[in-house]
Design a protein around this nucleic acid. Sequence first.
DNA 1: AAATCCATTCTTGTATACAAAGAATTTGAC
DNA 2: GTCAAATTCTTTGTATACAAGAATGGATTT
Lengths: 218, 218
Amino acid sequence: MERKRADLIADAIEELILDGTFDDGDRLDEVQLAERFNVSRTPIREALQRLILSGLVEQLPRRGVFVRQPGPVELIEMFEVMAELEAVCARLAASRISDAALAQLRAINERCRTATEAQDADGNYDQNDLFHATLYAQTGNAFLEQECLRLQRRLRPFRRLQLRWRGRMAQSVAEHDAILAAIEAGDGDQAGNLLRQHVAVQGEKFHRLMSSLKPAAE
Amino acid sequence: MERKRADLIADAIEELILDGTFDDGDRLDEVQLAERFNVSRTPIREALQRLILSGLVEQLPRRGVFVRQPGPVELIEMFEVMAELEAVCARLAASRISDAALAQLRAINERCRTATEAQDADGNYDQNDLFHATLYAQTGNAFLEQECLRLQRRLRPFRRLQLRWRGRMAQSVAEHDAILAAIEAGDGDQAGNLLRQHVAVQGEKFHRLMSSLKPAAE
DNA sequence: AAATCCATTCTTGTATACAAAGAATTTGAC
DNA sequence: GTCAAATTCTTTGTATACAAGAATGGATTT
């Protein structure tokens, strides 16, 4: 249901940024991209606009658009917002979730557990995202759901990094268990606090990862 | 610091939508807009893209872009998210705010009170927005601040409506007082709950306004 | 030799021309 | 007279041409 060429290109460029083909600070040359995708500059410019609005790149007037990877500070901030948003989701979902959806969440977390035991990082990753997305849907607030999905998507590449932490996957599954228990008990505040911690720890781990890397770079 | 013509046009079109020149469901004709602003279709299309991304208009592929005012349900949802976001702001600000900023908030609320006593709805409205924006800035989280400002901006025209409620302005000032007291006491949870209620009541009042208008329209 | 100014060139921003996809209208057949 | 199909016409999406602003390089001057 993609709309037009420009949308496909936007996704493609986003992919190129996220997988490191374009690095932080790189200028995205319109004509280069145009010949790379075999289109004119027009759809390229439309695609870039989308990326500008999403915050992935920055535009300096009359200068061009530049890749703008969030710095450590901004990342911490984004993780904090994500943690708070998810806490809201958990609290709302605790009073609004259906039995069917609760069962579904349990099933997803079981697949998380299976993937963890099989040391399947990719499987764990996918099911983990699905777990959270399913929870968003159970807030009964479609707007909130969309906002959460937007931020989740933005943080995806960074979340992926911290999966490498030893024992993190198993810990994550256990935290999901606790969150589910709180939701099932209808304790929204407890569910919210648990989920906030669950997400915030990702930000902290990421922060420590960054700190351990930065000194070497500078 | 506007970037180019397209940005000015985007703001102008947004204004035209918000002030009712373009109604819900209207198609925004590129050529009409082009001659209205005395530019070619290119900057118009760029401007429309911005509005599409912001959610103010909707694009049907190969059909055009249409004004898409949020329905009652979506509005309720947006107010709920705003309330939760502001609650987070209050909670965070309670532990991070500076004395200077706290004094500033008090000053702003005093101007709110003055405006209220003078029956100055516009003044109250402006100071009220400033009060909330100042609070966002005190979360120490620039990303959160930006997200809040974005949503605040989106809800602005609807918030304005509920100012007409008799006694609402005075009530609002009183609620600000209570929120400030909680922040000053460092009670983040209390401040959050108060602010959530403070914003949520706007959504509810708006809902009731909509309900009282809709039956006549259908 | 260094700095500044001017010119050239490169890149973005805008206009226009072209193509393709829907929508609408008209014409033909039943 | 009505329904359907085809053609035309409108409108979006894309390409290209043009204009204006910024960067870079060289030359000249101090």
